[in-house]
Structure formats: structure tokens, C-alpha cells
Design a protein around this nucleic acid. Structure first.
Lengths: 331, 331
DNA sequence: TTGTAGGCGTTATCAA
DNA sequence: TTGATAACGCCTACAA
């Protein structure tokens, strides 16, 4: 029942373990005859080398930690899949952890991963655990922050330009002569949410428009907060004619809210971050900021492999920034 | 830069490595004084034991392999999350692999995982690699098939009752007096797709209705095949008045197809497997077979932990079957 | 209560 | 071209 070891194979093939190892790794010299014979025995007994022992000996885990805030969110999983592709190609594998946006779980996850001796860490963080992350980087583990980043931390990042995208979104609405633009933001502990708010605010400032506090709703990236935003906006003397929403879940909530209040969906113009595929199925005015998780994952994967296989020359931290595109879905 | 070992800590604390190990594992005797002192040193140097070495010594990886056909599909990831919860609680962790429905990738994944000495395998398979999976089970690794199963394989399974659900779906449409029911099925290599087709066929038979081949469209669980189905149905002399779709992606395709053909979405009644959250946003007649990935994950997690911590008594394979519910979303 | 030492399954160095 | 053998970092009899 218990697994065969290299010794069993060596005995069976009548050679030393060293020879088996050489065959396994295509390293050193080994005559064709012996090689064939050894391969035969390996196949016959379906021997599989113990990756744990190999890792210990080589002092290389060949594993990469990836820490995400929500494994059920396809956005993050598309990033993860792209990275996994690249890693498998190069003989690495991923250790996933889902923090569910919980800083405590994140801390535990990071401890767990360092004990597992990951060679690199890919992180879309909760916003907490700065010091621990810095320490991991200092200890020689390559760290790449994806989607979300920390200010003043000298680490590799691959992110989208949220400020620019949010700014464009507001400018788009201003060009269409909207005077009352409602906004719904995400948790300000998350860098993307903060930057989207910054970008939107910046666009209004540049247009010389003073921010009306009643038109700014602080949501939490959840569907419920989208509904809540609509309830709030409907209580205002002057309802917004357009809404800028900083993620797709909240936008879905907005539609649900409008429906709940009996307001026609096409009576309000919406610009939203994220994918809203279903939107083509009904009449309304929607523009989305299309993100590109696959490109983000590919970029992070390339950077990762470069860091892992790169020589000793310590490069400066890389900051790759992708540009989301504004896509108008309705005329 | 390189990590500290138990020896370093032993030297630093002026005790033997055995003592350090005892402190780390709360095993054996160790005086309070020494224990405190050791903990102090561990904290001071931020020592983290090497999980790889520990695994090798204990001949326990404490890792569970989980193989899924699509990591970007929230259905599977909700299952995975539930399992991960349970595993972390018990000190195990998950090794994820996404096969992208590719049997070759699946085979590679299984090899990879067995080399990593997983203690259990959770699998939503492509339908191939039967022998390899059986061999894994025979070698003493607990195997639990989720969502999809193999006929005639004596393994634990946690699945949904697809036959029953599909049968109910058709019965529901028959009760509403639909005479022309179109069906779109998934790839018959996947057990769920096959069972859904079986269930639907069974319901028609029991109602004494002969199957019209033109009304049965063989799709592949993709959005495109949903569109293709509509194009096909529209070419028939007599269009179906209702459609039974065996997954949500194809149903989305159906809506897109209807829109493309200029057919009002509410002119055709649909029953579909899977979640279609957006559906409440427009007028149409939709009934869904609501699946419960979290319950499936919880069930699999419980079974898994029982297998892992269960004594030597070999229990017969368990087959847990969950009942999906038919939910009418429109009057 | 603590320490010594052997071994988990590999790989890699050195001889032969 | 092959074989002995010493690690890798940890745990655990067994001694002390």
C-alpha cells in the first residue's frame, strides 16, 4: 500500500540509487542499456518519485503562493488561471489561498505559505499585513502584488490604472452633459476602490464642479450596497441622472434597486467597472470599464518567471500598469 | 537570506534540537522555563519550521488534491471554497489544478499530485482517465468524486440528482401544456450532461411522447452552442414553445440567439440548470434548477475529513446525492 | 526533563 | 560509466 522508493527500484533493477536518480533527472552519464532497463522497471512498478523528498534535498519547493480575496470571483480566477499556465510550463505549481477579504486569514495564509517554503508570492491583498509582506520580500521570496497595491512598498506590482479609468468614466458622463452624477464607491481600505474614488474626484475638480456629498455613496463592493445606494439617491430632492459605479456587483445591485423602486432601467445612465455580460439583454444606457484579467495574469506570470529564473542581479521593482478600456454598450 | 533551521534555534537557545521540536509540537516533556525561553528565541528570530522536512519525516503531506474542469466557473469554486474551509480547520491544505476539460491535462495533474503525495483526491473529472483514478484509489489515497461520477467505479461520490432534476423540469413544462419542447444538451462524455439528457428523455417517455430528433440539439455547455440551438430551432417548420437547457451558459446563449433573431425573450418558456441571476431584470418566463455548490462542498468536506481521520475500518463507498430545486422565477 | 542519533526519500559529490 | 555516502531539516525512539 505504501509507496515504492528509489531504493526498491534500484534493488529491482540491480543498480544503485544514484543511477536511478540519474535516469530520473537525465543528469550525469548513464549507458543506454542501463537506462532502458531502469525505465522498464520504473514503468513496470509505476514508480513515482517523492516530490517532497526531492524538494527537501534540492532546497527548492518549486511552489508559488497565490493569495486572493475571493476565489469565487471570476475576475481573480482568470488572473490565476493565466498565472497557473505559465507556472506549469516552467515546472512550478501554485498554492492557492482565499482570504475572503479577511486580514486575519491573510496573515495565517502568509505564515502557512512561508512554512511551505514558497519561492514566490502573488498577492491581491486585503490592505492589511504590510509589515509581514515586506518581511517576506526581505527574506528573499519574490513578491508580486496584483490588482491591488500598497503605497510606499518597494515591490513588484501589476495593476490596472484605476485612477485614469475612473477619470475617463466621469469625463464621459460630463461630456454627455450630466449635471447630477451619483457615485458609489468601494471599501477605502482596498487600493483599487480608493484609486477609483480619487480618479472620479479628480475629474470633477478639473471640470470645476464641486462635489455634492449627497451624491457620493460609500458602498462595500456588494450587491446590497448597490441597492442601498439607489434607495439613498431616490430620497434626494434631485435624483442623479447618471451613476458611476466602481464595481459590477454594486452595479447589479443598482439595477435591482431601480427595479424595486419601479424606476425604468433606461432612465438613468450608468458607467461601471467590470464585466456585465447580461446587459445586452435589456434596454438601458450602460458603459463599462472593461478589465483584462487574462492580460494581467499573463503579465504577472512573465514577471514571475523572470524573477525566478533571473540571475542574481537585483532589478529594481517593476510596476506594470494596464489600461482598462471604456466600452459603450448602448447607443 | 536563507531560512533558519531548528539547529540554529537550538544553538541560540542553548538546548538540543529535540527540545525545540518538542516545544513546536507540544509533545513530550519540557519544563516551563525552557519552553518559555525557547518560544522567546523562536519569536525573536521569527523562526518558521520547514513544512517540507516535516512532511518527509512524518510521511504525511497533509495536502489534498482537488482537480476541477474550470477554475473560472463560480459553481466549482464555491464547492472548492467550502472544502477548503473544512480542510484548513483540520490542518490540511488544498492543491488545486484546473484541467480546462482536457483529459491530457487531467492525467498530468493526477501524476503531479501523486508525486506530491496527496493524502486524498477530490475530483470533478473530464470523464477520461478511469484506470488511473482507480489506481490512485487502490494505492490507498482517498478519492471523492464530486459533481461528476463514473459508472461502475467503487468510489465515494457527492453529486446532485441530475436525472431527477431534469425529469422534473420536463414534467413541469408538460404540465403547462407545452407540446413542442426543445432540448439542448451538453457533451455526453460528462456524466452530468448524460444524466440530464436521460432524465429528460425519461420524462417524455413516461408521458407517452415520442422524441422528435429535430427538437434535440447537442450542445457543448458553451454560450455559442446556445446561440446555435436557437438558429437551428428557428429553421424548423414548427418552432418549440419551450426549451429545456442543461446549463446556464447555454441558456445565456439562447437569450442572445433569440435577440439576434429578433424574437421576444418572453415568447418562449425556458427551464434551465444553473444560476441566472440577471434574469430578474427583464420580462420572460424562466424556471431554474437551482444547484447548491456550497452544500455539495460541505458534504464532500465532511466525508473527506471522516475518511482522513477515520480508523482502519474500511467503509463501503459512500454515495451522497443532493436534490436540486426547481425555482420558478416568473409568474 | 533533556540529549543523542538514526532515518524519512532524494540528489550530488567524490571515488572507483 | 557506476556506486557509496553524506547531506537536506525535522521528528522520535532510546539513553542519560
Amino acid at each position: 500500500m505504501s509507496k515504492l522508493t528509489i531504493k526498491d527500484i534500484a534493488r529491482e533493477a540491480g543498480v544503485s540509487t544514484a543511477t536511478i536518480s540519474r535516469v530520473l533527472n537525465n543528469s550525469g552519464y548513464v549507458s543506454q542499456d542501463v537506462k532502458q532497463q531502469v525505465l522498464e522497471v520504473i514503468r513496470k512498478f509505476n514508480y513515482q518519485p517523492n516530490a517532497i523528498a526531492r524538494s527537501l534535498k534540492q532546497e527548492k519547493s518549486r511552489s508559488i503562493g497565490i493569495v486572493l480575496p475571493d476565489m469565487t470571483n471570476p475576475y481573480f480566477m482568470k488572473i490565476a488561471r493565466a498565472i497557473q499556465h505559465r507556472c506549469f510550463q516552467e515546472g512550478y505549481h501554485l498554492l492557492f489561498v482565499d482570504t475572503e477579504e479577511n486580514p486575519d486569514k491573510e496573515r495565517e495564509a502568509l505564515d502557512f505559505l512561508t512554512e511551505k517554503r514558497i519561492e514566490a508570492l502573488i498577492l491581491a491583498g486585503t490592505g492589511a499585513n504590510r509589515d509581514q509582506i515586506q518581511a517576506i520580500s526581505d527574506s528573499g521570496i519574490h513578491v508580486i502584488l496584483i490588482d491591488r497595491r500598497f503605497s510606499n512598498l518597494k515591490l513588484d506590482t501589476v495593476t490596472e490604472d484605476n485612477i485614469y479609468a475612473a477619470k475617463s468614466a466621469i469625463e464621459f458622463l460630463l461630456e454627455k452633459n450630466h449635471q447630477q452624477i451619483g457615485m458609489i464607491h468601494g471599501p477605502q481600505s482596498i487600493s483599487t476602490a480608493k484609486e477609483r474614488k480619487q480618479g472620479a474626484t479628480l475629474a470633477l475638480q478639473e471640470a470645476g464642479i464641486t462635489l455634492t456629498p449627497e451624491l457620493v455613496f460609500e458602498g462595500d463592493y456588494s450587491r446590497e450596497s448597490g441597492i442601498a445606494a439607489i434607495r439613498h439617491f431616490c430620497e434626494l430632492p434631485e435624483r442623479p441622472t447618471a451613476i458611476f459605479s466602481t464595481n459590477n456587483e454594486m452595479t447589479f445591485g443598482i439595477y435591482l434597486g431601480l427595479q424595486e423602486m419601479g424606476i425604468p432601467l433606461d432612465s438613468i445612465e450608468i458607467v461601471s467597472f467590470g464585466n456585465l455580460e447580461f446587459s445586452s439583454l435589456f434596454e438601458h444606457q450602460l458603459t463599462v470599464i472593461m478589465q483584462n484579467p487574462q492580460e494581467l495574469g499573463d503579465t504577472a506570470g512573465d514577471l514571475l518567471i523572470r524573477r525566478l529564473s533571473g540571475g542574481e542581479e537585483v532589478e529594481a521593482p517593476q510596476n506594470r500598469i494596464l489600461m482598462p478600456r471604456l466600452i459603450q454598450l448602448s447607443p
